[in-house]
C-alpha cells in the first residue's frame, strides 16, 4: 500500500525551477533513499513533504488523504537534520521530554512522569542511557544524532525524513549508525525517506533509490536494478561510475596494504 503518493510536484525559487513535475510513491514501511548531487532538489522535496515549504503545484497524499495544505505538525511525520537541531540548553533527557510534552500530537497523552519514562525508553533503545543528564555539547556527533533520532521516534511518526543525517560524521560512526537505523526501522516499522549524496550509503541501506538531478527523477528502483539496468546515461555516469571507482579504489587499497606501501593509499 502507498504510504506517500506525490503527484506532479513543482517548485521554483527566484524563477529557477528546483523541482520539475516530480511524481513518485513510497510504500508503507519502505526505506527510500533520494540520491543526487547538491542542488538537485532532494532537500526541497523533503521540506515540501513535511510542510516546511509549499509547492508551486502538485499534490501529496498520505495514506490516501491529501495533505498538501495541512500544517506540518498535523502530518505525523518527523525529521532528522544533518546538524541535529537539538535544544542545546536542555539535557539529553529534557530534549526528548520537551518534545513529548509540547508536541501538538502527544502533549495530551503525556504528563511529566510518563513523558520521562517514554524518553528514557527511547534513549535506551538508541544506546544513550548513560548520557541522559548530559548537555548535547558534551556528546560526540554520532551520539547527538542518536538523540535527534530518539526525539523523533518518541513522537511515534508514521514517516521519518532524514536530511543527510550522517554527512558530518566520521566513517566509523556512520557505519554503526547505519546499522542502528536499519534495526530501528525493522523494530518500529516506520517508513523512512533518506536524503544523501553518498551512493555507498544509499545502496547499503535502501529498499529503493530515487536518483535525481536538476529537479527531475532519473530512476526510481531497487539498488540491484539500478546497477543492472540504469535508466539513462545520467544514472550510468553518476551512479555506476562512482561505484566502479569505489570498487577500483578498494582493489587498489587491498593491493597496497598487501605490499605494505601505505604512501599510495588514495581516498
Amino acid at each position: 500500500m502507498d504510504k506517500i503518493r506525490v503527484e506532479h510536484l513543482s517548485k521554483a525559487f527566484d524563477k529557477a525551477g528546483v523541482l520539475k513535475d516530480v511524481s513518485f510513491t513510497v510504500t508503507d514501511g519502505e526505506f527510500l533513499s533520494i540520491l543526487g548531487p547538491s542542488g538537485c532538489g532532494k532537500t526541497t522535496i523533503l521540506r515540501i513533504l513535511i510542510g516546511l515549504e509549499t509547492a508551486d503545484s502538485g499534490t501529496i497524499l498520505k495514506d490516501g488523504v491529501d495533505i498538501t495544505d495541512k500544517p506540518s505538525a498535523m502530518r505525523k511525520m518527523g525529521i532528522v537534520f544533518q546538524n541535529y537541531a537539538l535544544f542545546e540548553n536542555m539535557s539529553v533527557l529534557k530534549n526528548v521530554t520537551y518534545a513529548l510534552r509540547n508536541s501538538a500530537t502527544t502533549k495530551k497523552e503525556y504528563d511529566r512522569a510518563s513523558a520521562e519514562a517514554k524518553a528514557k525508553e527511547m534513549l535506551e533503545i538508541v544506546g544513550l542511557s548513560e548520557h541522559m543528564n548530559k548537555k548535547p555539547r558534551e556528546l560526540s556527533g554520532g551520539q547527538q544524532q542518536r538523540v535527534a533520532i530518539a526525539r523523533t521516534l518518541a513522537l511515534n511518526p508514521d514517516v521519518i525524513l532524514f536530511d543527510e543525517p550522517m554527512s558530518a560524521l566520521d566513517v566509523d560512526t556512520r557505519l554503526s549508525l547505519r546499522a542502528q537505523l536499519k534495526d530501528l526501522q525493522k523494530q518500529f516499522g516506520t517508513t523512512m525517506i533518506y536524503i544523501t549524496h553518498d551512493q555507498e550509503e544509499a545502496f547499503a541501506m535502501s529498499d529503493r533509490i530515487m536518483v535525481m538531478d536538476a529537479g527531475v527523477i532519473h530512476q526510481l528502483d531497487t539498488p540491484q536494478n539500478i546497477i543492472d539496468a540504469p535508466a539513462d546515461d545520467y544514472v550510468k555516469r553518476f551512479v555506476i561510475k562512482n561505484i566502479n571507482t569505489k570498487i577500483k579504489s578498494l582493489i587498489q587499497f587491498a593491493r597496497i596494504t598487501d605490499t605494505g606501501d601505505s604512501s599510495e593509499v588514495g581516498e
Binding site: I50, L52, S72, N83, A85, E88
Partner: peptide
C-alpha cells in the same frame, strides 16, 4: 550561530516559534 533548524523542528512537532 544558533542551530538554523530549531524552528523547523519545532514546526514539525507543532511547537510554535514563540515557544
Amino acid at each position: 550561530k544558533i542551530n538554523e533548524n530549531l524552528e523547523d523542528v519545532g514546526s514539525t512537532m507543532g511547537i510554535g516559534k514563540f515557544k
